[in-house]
């Protein structure tokens, strides 16, 4: 029996993604089911009804549960505070490497379906001026200034949206990078559960439709933080 199971070919990521798409439609999960990718930690929004994460490895004796973490621009790394198995508070530093972000973001491409990305691009095309859509297709980013706040946003593919304000006569100051993913995202990457352009459409909709909520829901990265993608 076990030999038979071993002989069966494993489904490809694409096949699993297509099956998840079917299941989501059957179960009325309109936003869809996120895809698990080996080696990447899938972070789901807290009210998501299904646990689709891969089983975590058993905790080692020296592991500790993270209680809080923040980026230190002085130390150029993440400071992590947690508790070990005995309940003692411990802290440590976690290196933030932009190259690792880049490579892991590439690995997330197994999670997306090309037809979904195409459909998202079609959607984005209906929302932008021809010039900005061209900028998106050629550069992977476009600009829009909010009529409410006057903040200029640079929406970037697979990177947090940059919030900019005029500084001085000609310059612009980066306020922060706004990172937001509907449904879920892959930790340590710039990739969300939705296709890259769908994430951008979500950013654009939230900025245009409810800017304060966009800021409240997004993770605000300091420009010096490698997670900001600068």
């Amino acid at each position: 029996m076990s030999e038979e199971v071993q002989e069966r070919p494993m489904p490809t990521y694409r096949q699993v993604a297509a099956k998840l798409k079917e299941l989501a439609t059957e179960r009325g999960e309109w936003a869809g089911f996120p895809m698990m990718v080996e080696g990447l930690e899938l972070c789901l929004e807290p009210r998501f009804p299904y646990d689709l994460r891969l089983k975590p490895k058993p905790a080692a004796a020296d592991d500790f549960k993270i209680v809080n973490s923040w980026f230190s621009s002085r130390l150029r790394c993440e400071v992590v505070v947690g508790r070990d198995a005995a309940g003692r508070a411990r802290f440590g530093y976690r290196a933030m490497n932009q190259a690792a972000f880049l490579i892991d973001t590439m690995r997330a491409c197994d999670a997306w379906l090309l037809e979904a990305e195409r459909s998202a691009i079609d959607k984005l095309a209906t929302m932008l001026s021809h010039r900005m859509f061209t900028a998106y297709m050629l550069v992977g980013a476009f600009l829009e200034t909010s009529k409410r706040s006057g903040v200029t946003y640079m929406f970037r593919k697979l990177r947090p949206t940059l919030a900019l304000r005029p500084d001085g006569d000609e310059g612009m100051r980066i306020l922060c990078g706004l990172c937001l993913h509907p449904v879920g995202y892959y930790a340590g990457t710039w990739a969300g559960a939705q296709t890259p352009t769908d994430d951008m459409v979500a950013h654009l909709l939230m900025m245009r439709g409810d800017e304060p909520k966009f800021w409240a829901n997004a993770n605000q990265h300091h420009p010096s933080n490698p997670a900001c993608g600068l």
Partner: peptide, 16 residues
Amino acid sequence: TQTETGIDVLSIGHGD
């Protein structure tokens, strides 16, 4: 199609 009515949902598998 921008002027159409209805509901558009951003979805993982379908895109839109």
